[in-house]
Computed example of a mutant assay.
Amino acid sequence: MVEHSNRKDSRAAEAHQSSCLDPFGTWKMSNAAHGFGYPSFVSYNGLEMVWAILFYVPRWLWKNWEAGKVSALRMDLNLGIISEVEKKLKKKLLIDYMYSNLKHHNFWAYRYFFCEFLSLINVGGQMVLLDRFFDGTFFTYGIEVMSFADRDQEDRIDPMIYVFPRMTKCTFHKFGTSGNIEKHDALCILPLNIVNEKIYIFIWFWLLIIGFLTFLVLVYRAAIIFSPYIRALVLRMRYRRVKRECIDMVIGKSYVGDWFLIYLMGQNIDSVIFKDVIHELAKKLGYRSRDIGET
């Protein structure tokens, strides 16, 4: 604890020491004597590009794996107002597809679940990446900011200034009148860090919330995978027009991949048409009831 405190005090003090201006005009603080450096503006931009790419990867994977299956099966049945002949034909095509391909959608669905899991790994990886980027200070950055006001005055070090220094000693190199390179020292303000400290405190909370919500989604997904009862319950709650017995019949004769496809189709086609599709599918699977006639 003492070593960690000394390290923080030392780094906070060094925040006002040497820096240089790189050839592209961006500030880059450094302290070779103590073996650490402060990230430059170019580094921040590069890191944000990495975030964007990594967060897009799960969506890109699913977009390629899904390959427009739901859109193809929808067949304009989301419109609702279509001719009866066309409606019957398209419903029959959809029912025949779902019946003939029953129990063959697990691999397709598990790839979507993998993308959800990859999203959680991505959030955790982003936290680790940022923590390494900021020399082990990002994990506790939000906590430090929230607890800053409650600390004793003599022990109070603003964590935002500690991570994002606002002032530093600058060394300018330029050609003098004799043609030699001259060094000029000045006290420089880093106004961009005033913005960066606010951005990264938002990112800290944002990643924390996203990680927690993604974890809850994975818990829900695990319950869906291992419990047919929960799968049926979700469909009954989401699609109340469909008869409970028909849902139970379909879920009892299908796998989780079929449930996932049915759930997505319910979100993408007209609710009345979806009800007819599930009722007809249940009849093909063996459900018998006078309440369900030909549709």
Rank of each mutant, 00 (worst) to 15 (best):
A223H: 12
T171N: 02
S147W: 10
I199G: 00
P58G: 06
S5L: 13
F117V: 04
W60K: 10
H34S: 09
I203A: 08
L21K: 00
L77D: 05
Y44A: 03
G25A: 04
G136D: 15
N31Q: 06
E84I: 00
V277P: 01
V57K: 07
V234M: 12
P159H: 09
T168H: 00
L118R: 10
Q267I: 00
D96C: 01
N268E: 15
L54I: 10
D96V: 04
F117I: 05
F24P: 00
F24R: 11
Q267T: 03
L102D: 04
V50N: 06
R240G: 12
D152V: 02
T295V: 06
K87T: 05
R288T: 14
R156P: 04
I273K: 02
F175L: 11
R288H: 12
V250F: 02
V50C: 01
L187V: 13
K91I: 04
R236S: 10
I121H: 08
F260G: 01
T177A: 10
R59Q: 14
F139E: 12
N45K: 14
P58A: 03
R111V: 08
E66Y: 04
L213V: 13
A232P: 09
V234W: 07
S227L: 09
E144F: 03
Y141K: 05
L190S: 02
F175D: 15
L285P: 01
Y97S: 13
I262P: 02
N101I: 01
L187D: 13
N78G: 15
H34L: 10
I224M: 12
W60R: 03
F148M: 03
E14N: 08
L261T: 02
K275S: 12
K91H: 06
L187I: 12
C20S: 11
Q126R: 09
Q17D: 10
L61Q: 08
V57P: 03
L79T: 08
I199D: 14
M249N: 05
D291Y: 08
K275R: 15
I292F: 03
F36K: 03
D135T: 09
G68S: 03
V277T: 04
L61W: 11
I278W: 05
R166W: 14
D248K: 07
Y239N: 14
K169T: 14
K87F: 01
H16E: 13
I210L: 14
S227E: 13
A223W: 15
D152P: 03
M237T: 11
L281E: 05
S30K: 00
Y38N: 02
D22L: 00
N268R: 12
K253F: 06
V123Q: 10
R11S: 04
V70I: 15
R236M: 13
F139R: 11
N196Y: 12
H184E: 15
D276M: 02
P39K: 13
L235D: 07
K91P: 00
I273M: 08
E86H: 04
G293L: 07
K174I: 00
L61P: 00
I82W: 09
K174G: 02
H173R: 12
I225Y: 11
F138W: 05
L118W: 13
I273Y: 03
G293M: 05
G293N: 11
N64G: 06
A72Q: 14
V250D: 08
D155Y: 09
R59W: 12
R166T: 15
V145I: 14
K243S: 08
